[in-house]
């Protein structure tokens, strides 16, 4: 359904070009849930904004690659076609619900807007659809809340409103960009539960962007790990957690304490900090922090290679099983 090939996005600054996304390729089947994991600055949000055609130009620019959605290249679409697709077939939920809603428009207004634009219904039908959507995302007494403003809703409720808005035109793909990062754990559990239920009911595909390896474990089918604008590992969910193979993924998993672990162990941290994206050297970007680096890693940036039928990593080294856990 969605296929991204060698996507490259840069941002021009006075100090040089920032290589935010550096050759990202992946595909997604209808109804599938994909988790993209990475730290801040790893390029996960920028790749999604590129897919949606939302990169501000200037300073940003997509300099290479293709994004095929149902056979058509999004990057070559006219602004009109793009508008028709955005919100209608691909929808997005953002990280901070309170800043992504317009504070001076009522909730009812904001949700019915996309229904009016994309579906050609009249105003009354749009209002009915809005109530239906609010009920679907679990907002109590939806009819009475249409005329409320965003500040009258809590963070978790606003995120539900955002999801209702995203679902208003039955999209085939929902991109959720860190939807729970600004929320508390009990509210996060509510939202994860809601999206998982809606995905099953509506049969849409979901891309779930997060930095939390725990959230991903409960709600997706396959996982992509990003580092410095590149995909470093891509695998089906269970395969990834049972057999993480890129030194960065292994390091991340080992640096997290587990709620259900039995003994107190010292956390194994990844030393150093992520690289500066302005002048990335030609080598593997993880080399300065990697414990397994060999001479070859300093000369060539490894391409994604298959280690079994569904599992890919971009690393020259095969790490023995006993160093993985």
């Amino acid at each position: 359904m969605l296929e991204v090939k060698e996507l490259k996005t840069i941002f021009s600054t006075r100090d040089g070009d920032i290589n935010a996304v550096n050759g990202v390729s992946f595909f997604l089947q209808p109804g599938e849930a994909l988790g993209i994991v990475g730290e801040s600055g790893s390029g996960k949000s920028v790749s999604m904004l590129s897919i949606m055609g939302l990169i501000p130009d200037p300073p940003g620019k997509i300099v290479g690659g293709e994004v095929l959605f149902q056979g058509r290249d999004i990057l070559k679409m006219s602004p009109h076609d793009l508008r028709e697709m955005r919100g209608n077939r691909i929808a997005m939920v953002f990280q901070e619900p309170l800043t992504s809603l317009n504070p001076v428009l009522t909730i009812g207004n904001q949700i019915s807007e996309s229904v009016l634009i994309h579906t050609g219904r009249d105003k009354r039908q749009a209002i009915n659809r809005t109530v239906e959507l609010l009920n679907m995302v679990g907002i109590p007494e939806a009819e009475n809340r249409l005329n409320d403003y965003p500040h009258q809703f809590s963070g978790g409720m606003c995120q539900r409103v955002m999801i209702a808005m995203a679902l208003s035109c039955d999209p085939q793909l929902l991109i959720a960009d860190e939807p729970t990062t600004a929320l508390d754990v009990t509210i996060q559990a509510q939202i994860v539960d809601l999206v998982t239920r809606l995905r099953k009911e509506l049969g849409m595909a979901v891309i779930w962007i997060t930095h939390d390896l725990g959230v991903v474990a409960s709600c997706v089918d396959k996982v992509i790990v990003m580092y410095a604008g590149q995909i470093v590992e891509s695998a089906p969910l269970k395969e990834f957690y049972a057999n993480p193979s890129h030194p960065y993924s292994i390091g991340l998993l080992r640096s997290l304490p587990r709620l259900d672990s039995k003994i107190h162990q010292k956390l194994i941290s990844i030393e150093g900090a992520p690289p500066n994206l302005i002048d990335l050297p030609d080598c593997c970007p993880f080399v300065p922090r990697c414990k397994n680096a060999v001479e070859k890693c300093k000369d060539n940036n490894p391409p994604l290679r298959k280690i079994n039928s569904s599992h890919k990593i971009s690393c020259w080294v095969d790490i023995p099983q006993n160093e993985k856990t």
Partner: peptide, 19 residues
């Protein structure tokens, strides 16, 4: 129960108390 654990095998078996 709301805290996710980074292991899909554990997550499958857990029952969440959703407040």
């Amino acid at each position: 129960s709301a805290v996710p654990i980074h292991d899909p095998l554990v997550e499958e078996k857990r029952r969440r108390i959703i407040l």
